[in-house]
Simulated assay, not measured.
Amino acid sequence: MLIEQRTYQLKPGTLNEFLRVYQAEGLKIQSEALGNLIAYLKPETGDVNRVIHIWGFSSYEDRAQRRAALSGNPKWHEFLGKAGHMVTAQQVELLTGAPFSPIQ
């Protein structure tokens, strides 16, 4: 399994609004396109102005196809117009499990 971990840095004070808009509009659109949401997280300590989400894909090709479908969805672009201004930076990591990891 290919794991994609995305961390979005948010403007201070916008976390709750971002989560509200994402849950109401973005989650369904993104889940339909990407498929396997493993976790959607918010820090309780440290830098609390961010969200981390983790998605699973069967391969690099699967990820590329699913992300292309999401990028081509007009409803996703509408959501980005409502929430994108709250994001100040983004970090994306593609990960694979070590031989002994529960996630392979």
Rank of each mutant, 00 (worst) to 15 (best):
M1V: 14
L2T: 13
L2S: 07
I3D: 01
T7A: 02
T7H: 04
Y8L: 04
Y8R: 03
L10H: 00
P12E: 06
G13S: 08
T14M: 00
E17A: 01
E17K: 00
E17S: 00
F18V: 09
F18R: 05
L19H: 06
V21M: 01
Y22Q: 01
Y22I: 01
Q23T: 15
Q23I: 11
Q23Y: 10
E25I: 11
E25R: 11
S31I: 09
E32Y: 14
E32L: 12
L34E: 07
A39G: 10
Y40Q: 13
K42L: 03
P43M: 10
T45S: 12
G46L: 12
V51I: 14
I52N: 07
I54K: 13
F57S: 03
S58K: 11
S59C: 08
Y60Q: 13
Y60C: 10
Y60V: 15
E61N: 15
E61H: 14
E61D: 15
D62L: 08
D62N: 13
A64W: 01
A68K: 10
L70A: 09
S71H: 08
G72I: 02
G72L: 01
N73W: 11
N73C: 10
P74W: 06
K75F: 06
W76H: 11
W76A: 04
H77Q: 14
H77F: 01
E78C: 08
E78L: 11
F79Y: 13
L80E: 05
G81H: 02
G84P: 04
G84S: 05
H85Y: 02
V87A: 02
T88Y: 04
A89F: 07
A89R: 07
Q91D: 12
E93N: 12
L95A: 08
L95C: 10
T96C: 04
P99M: 05
P99T: 09
S101E: 04
P102L: 04
Q104N: 11
Q104M: 08
